[in-house]
Write a protein that binds this DNA or RNA. Structure first.
Length: 478
RNA sequence: GGCCUCAUGGUCAAGCGGUUAAGACGUCGCCCUCUCACGGCGAAAUCAGGGGUUCGAGUCCCCUUGGGGCUACCA
């Protein structure tokens, strides 16, 4: 039997990382077992439908490297893969379930349902309409009365199943309600569409969040009533925003797209969320998709909730950045450089080279390099550096020699500048560190720069460097 | 409230009856060094609490506590 897994999101907004991880595990499990990974859109709740959300799902999965074998936009033998286009299918099976005694029509009004609420506000349907005769049901439908179809859950008994992660789960049927399968608008609820589609699409392994752990017995009841084989259930622990809050769509920053636009690499994000609830046997952390597929196994998936740690994500993203070649990094960084104040006035390839080991997330780039384009008054205290034995006074003394030295340079490449400065330091009988410090501060006005004094001068060029050195000297002596 | 479920450093987590309780992020210190970063080395830091079972418990059982989920004509 070939493994078939499915990711079944509802298009109610954007792809959040919890959903991405569920999709990832579905994908990994399918690929690990040479199976098929299917995308199904669950849009039976028209009220929550958000325009454009399906497209975001498609693009997020693709960006994340999870190509699906079947889905709305790629086709497949079990379509349609959008639930709103399967309306007739659900009704047909709902009718069959009624025949089999697993469901029944219900005409109860919202008002009547309200009266069923207990002190805590919990409603429990009393199977009122289960008693209706076939004839009465037919007559009321014919009369145009609005109705829903409810699942007929036994009043006694226990539903038990074996979850691949959580083990044996048992829920007393008396805890379950006769939930609605077909809404008055004729569309199914998740509870029903899910079961019908998973069966019709040949899903062998149902992988989803742990919020379904305790309602799964209801679904099993339907599988049994239809005489269908139950799938293997794999429930995943939640991803938390912090100790008490689950990562949810409300937490805006948890959107995959947002992370990508902030300068996180899709591969790094995917790699990181894979680690939230799963740990490969060899403890690898930085892994390619192919490696994850090879290493993935359910017995390494854990049960406890994991808190999303963006600090570690940042680190991993930085690892991906550092592992790139200069050219690869330039490709992902160039837009961030040109859209900063720096624009295109310098050699951005050199800037990128300097940035590669200094950036964890691409959106840090502008702040790190804006000073290259903007220069003006700065705090003269920056010249103070204990270890280099420099301060403002030293700077005032050194700057004229520095200016003279730089203006005398024929070429302005790294080694030329470096050698000239080293030589100057020797001639002046001072520590090279002092000279470099003064030079760098006078050139940039920054305590921290992505690269040393020589690199900064090199990027700025001889002309700008001289202008800045003079500016600094004037600033200090005025 | 009822039911389901989870519980190892600040975080992700190894562990599956006998270990000096891995590793990673983060933190701190040192080295490297023209600042920062990279890189290297090192340190501090964890079994929620209480009962059992056992020669022996982070590992098994029970209770307590705390967290999450479900309890919708949402998924």
């Amino acid at each position: 039997m070939t493994v078939r897994t499915r990711f079944a999101p509802s298009p109610t907004g954007f792809m959040h990382l919890g959903g991405m991880r569920t999709a990832l595990y579905c994908y990994l499990y399918a690929k690990k077992h040479d199976g098929k990974f299917i995308l199904r859109i669950e849009d039976t709740d028209q009220e929550r439908f958000v325009e454009g959300a399906t497209e975001v799902i498609y693009s997020s999965l693709k960006q994340g490297g999870m190509s699906y074998d079947e889905g709305p936009d790629v086709g497949g033998d079990f379509g349609p893969y959008i639930q709103s286009k399967r309306r007739d299918i659900y009704m047909k099976y709902a009718l069959e379930l009624i025949e089999r005694g697993g469901a029944y029509y219900c005409f109860c009004s919202k008002e009547r349902l309200e009266t069923l609420r207990d002190d805590l506000g919990n409603a429990r349907y009393d199977k009122h309409c289960l008693k209706l005769s076939k004839e009465e049901v037919a007559a009321r439908i014919a009369a145009g009365e609005s109705y829903v179809i409810r699942q007929n859950i036994p009043e006694k008994g226990v539903g038990t199943y074996e979850d691949a992660i959580y083990g044996r789960i048992s829920v007393d049927y008396s805890e379950l309600e006769d939930n609605i399968l077909i809404k008055s608008d004729g569309l199914p609820t998740y509870n029903f569409a899910n079961v019908v589609d998973d069966h019709l699409m040949g899903i062998t392994h149902v992988i989803r969040g742990s919020e379904y752990l305790s309602s799964t017995p209801k679904y099993n009841l339907m599988y049994d009533a239809f005489g269908w084989e139950r799938p293997t259930y794999i429930h995943l622990p939640p991803i938390m925003k912090d100790a008490t809050r689950k990562l949810s769509k409300r937490y805006g920053d948890a959107n995959f797209d947002d992370f990508v636009s902030k300068g996180y690499l899709p591969e790094a994000i995917i790699n990181y969320i894979a680690l939230l609830g799963w740990c490969p046997k060899d403890n690898s952390e930085k892994m390619t998709m192919q490696e994850m597929i090879e290493k993935f196994s359910l017995d390494r998936v854990c049960k406890s909730p994991a808190i999303f740690d963006d600090v570690k994500l940042r680190w991993l993203n930085g690892e991906y950045l550092k592992a790139m070649t200069d050219d690869e990094f330039y490709q992902v960084a160039k837009d961030w450089i040109t859209s900063s104040k720096v624009g295109e006035s310098f050699d951005n390839r050199v800037i990128a080279q300097l940035l590669r080991t200094r950036v964890e997330v691409l959106n840090e780039i502008p702040d790190k390099i804006n000073f290259l384009a903007e220069f003006g008054e700065y705090d003269s205290e920056l010249f103070f550096h204990k270890k280099s034995k420099t301060d403002k006074e030293v700077a005032i003394k050194l700057l004229p020699s520095l200016i003279e030295c730089v203006s005398g340079l024929e070429s302005f490449d790294h080694d030329t500048i470096y050698n000239a400065l080293a030589e100057l330091a020797t001639r002046l009988e001072i520590k090279a560190a002092s000279l470099f410090w003064v030079f760098r501060i006078a050139l940039t006005g920054q305590a921290v720069t992505p690269g040393g004094a020589v690199e900064m001068a090199q990027i700025l060029g001889k002309k700008v460097s001289l202008e800045r050195l003079n500016f600094s000297l004037n600033m200090l002596t005025k």
